[in-house]
């Protein structure tokens, strides 16, 4: 059974000036443990789609289901990772990790154990008592991911989590995050502008059209070298360029030409 299911989902925004149809007729089904990337032109409603799955937005049409149950509000099964880490300056790294657990009134001792375990595991153990401002951008984003994981979601929504980082950090971190997510066995939905990131991390890449957005295609990413390649290796794999070019061409057709 699919873990995340969108059935004929549509969403319109209302402002005093106009009505904007952001999404139309989205049908999607994602299995447990799958990693799906979403790409598309700017403003096509990629992030909106994540908000729908997270339960922060309600669709104006259709249904969103998680494990067969309709999403009515934010769910404990879902963790959201945003473009900026938004660590709280007034808490040290360790206490930042507990934010989600505190909000959800989870067992704090268990959360603390999990937090220190993950910190150690992902090489940040010595920074537990540091202030967030003492960490580099890449480290901060890793802390943000651990904060999400401490709340023990089954599904991770990643909204351009690397786009505020410099290129080198970005490549390294996407590799790490990929391993973390696979190791923890989470289902992941990644929104990104970066095609190579989308292809190298995901099992499937979903291409969206411009507004009102529909799913224009779905690419299964499979490599001859076999499964289990790291994003780094996938970028060097034989079929990588073919996927890249195919999706690139497809996106070009959707982008509004600059006059």
């Amino acid at each position: 059974m699919a873990q995340i299911e969108l059935k004929d989902v549509g969403l319109s925004y209302f402002t005093p000036k106009q009505e904007t149809e952001a999404l139309r007729g989205i049908n999607l089904s994602i299995r447990h443990g799958e990693f799906v990337s979403i790409v598309g032109p700017s403003g096509c409603g990629k992030s909106t789609l994540l908000s729908l799955v997270s339960g922060m937005l309600k669709p104006t049409k259709g249904n969103v289901l998680i494990d067969g149950e309709e999403v009515t509000g934010t769910s404990r099964k879902v963790g959201y990772m945003l473009q900026h880490d938004h660590l709280f300056e007034w808490r040290n790294v360790f206490n930042n990790l507990l934010v989600g657990a505190e909000i959800r009134k989870m067992d704090l001792n268990r959360a603390k154990r999990k937090a220190s375990e993950l910190l150690e595991r992902y090489g940040l153990g010595e920074f537990a008592q540091h202030g967030p401002s003492q960490l580099s951008g890449g480290m901060r984003q890793r802390v943000a991911l651990i904060r999400t994981l401490v709340a023990e979601p089954d599904i991770l929504l990643l909204d351009e989590p690397f786009s505020a980082l410099d290129y080198q950090t970005r490549l390294k971190l996407s590799d790490e995050v990929f391993h973390i997510i696979k190791e923890q066995g989470k289902t992941a939905l990644l929104v990104t502008h970066d095609l190579s990131e989308a292809i190298s991390m995901a099992d499937r890449v979903m291409v969206m059209s411009k507004r009102p957005s529909t799913i224009s295609s779905m690419h299964d990413i499979r490599f001859e070298e076999g499964g289990g390649l790291s994003p780094w290796k996938k970028r060097e794999a034989g079929l990588y360029n073919r996927y890249f070019n195919a999706i690139w061409k497809e996106l070009e057709g959707h982008v509004v030409p600059i006059i």
């Binding site: 934010t74 879902v78 963790g79 959201y80 945003l82 709280f88 989600g100 505190e102 709340a151």
Partner: peptide, 29 residues
């Protein structure tokens, strides 16, 4: 206080009291 900080809180399902106590007041020091 950035809207996205509150969005983060919202994504964890925080109530208004929690947003106040955990973000608004400390961030306003």
């Amino acid at each position: 206080i950035s809207k996205t900080k509150l969005k983060l809180m919202e994504s964890f399902g925080a109530s208004k009291i929690q947003m106040l106590r955990m973000v608004l007041l400390p961030a306003s020091i």
